[in-house]
Computed example of a mutant assay.
Amino acid sequence: MEPERFRDHDAWLQLMMAAHHASSGAAREEFIAWSTSDPMYAADDWSIGRRWDSLHIEGETSITARTFLDKLVQDAGGEVPNVPADEDFTVWESDDDELKDKVEKPRWSVRSLDDLANMPPPRWIVRKILQEESVAVLFGPPSEGKSFVALDLALHLAANMVWHDPRRTVMGGDVLYVAAEGAAGLAKRTSAWRKAHPVPLHADAFSAGYRVAEPVGQGRSEGLSRLRRG
């Protein structure tokens, strides 16, 4: 739809409400981009964004996507049949058991006090430090060696070695180390670690992932812009 057709404020507002309703508010940037593609409102992105955001606050989304589409069709001289919901779509069933498990598996588990008391004890990836199926944070001041500690821990797991203390037993396994920074120094660091710890370490036990920067050459201004944005 051409945005020039919606220069009338009421028509434009109804379309905004319908888009807001259909996307549960997630189409903000798309709606702003569409609205500002009309040269008359090319510089109004800020005010359009504020108007979109006000729909959350005011609860003003009274025009649904279905209502808006019905109006468009009727204005064009057509008619939208009122089909019962159970007849509107064909029932689809999948024979893929793996897909069924993904669809039917609940994201949350609600348990009683008795259920909690009977839960198995936690399994430790690193005894008393890092638990299985959990999220952990290694934090400290800048330049205090956090990356070295994280890499050392990852390599101990990959080698199935206790971590600097006989009590810190580990659950060895394959490790993916994501280097969000300092990827250039990984080769030297891992090489130094292996010299200090001459233990068997199969090739697939440790893998490093890092962001690949697209090379910027002649005529690659778009790649440069992406690098600057990070």
Rank of each mutant, 00 (worst) to 15 (best):
T64F: 01
P121L: 15
T67L: 12
D114G: 10
R66I: 11
D88H: 07
K102G: 02
S47F: 05
E30H: 09
S109M: 13
T64W: 03
P39C: 02
G140V: 00
K71I: 05
A19F: 00
K100G: 09
A33W: 04
K100N: 10
G25Q: 02
G59F: 08
V91G: 10
A43Q: 08
G145E: 03
V73K: 11
D96F: 01
E30T: 11
S37Q: 06
G59Q: 09
L72P: 02
S147M: 05
H21A: 11
E29T: 09
A85C: 06
K102W: 10
M16L: 14
P106C: 01
G78F: 01
W52E: 00
R127W: 13
D53Y: 05
W92R: 12
L113Q: 11
W12T: 00
S134K: 07
D10H: 12
P121M: 15
I57G: 06
L69H: 07
E60I: 07
D101F: 03
I129P: 00
A43Y: 07
V103T: 10
R51V: 08
P121W: 15
E87A: 09
E30C: 04
E4A: 14
A65Q: 08
L55F: 12
R7F: 07
K146I: 02
D152C: 12
R5M: 07
K105W: 04
D101N: 10
G49C: 02
E144A: 11
G77M: 04
S112Q: 04
A22V: 12
D10M: 07
M17Y: 03
G145Y: 00
S147P: 02
A22Y: 11
E58R: 15
K128N: 14
I125P: 02
S37N: 05
D8H: 12
M119N: 07
S24K: 13
M40D: 10
D88T: 13
D95Y: 04
D45Y: 05
A136E: 07
L15P: 00
S143T: 08
E60Y: 06
D38M: 00
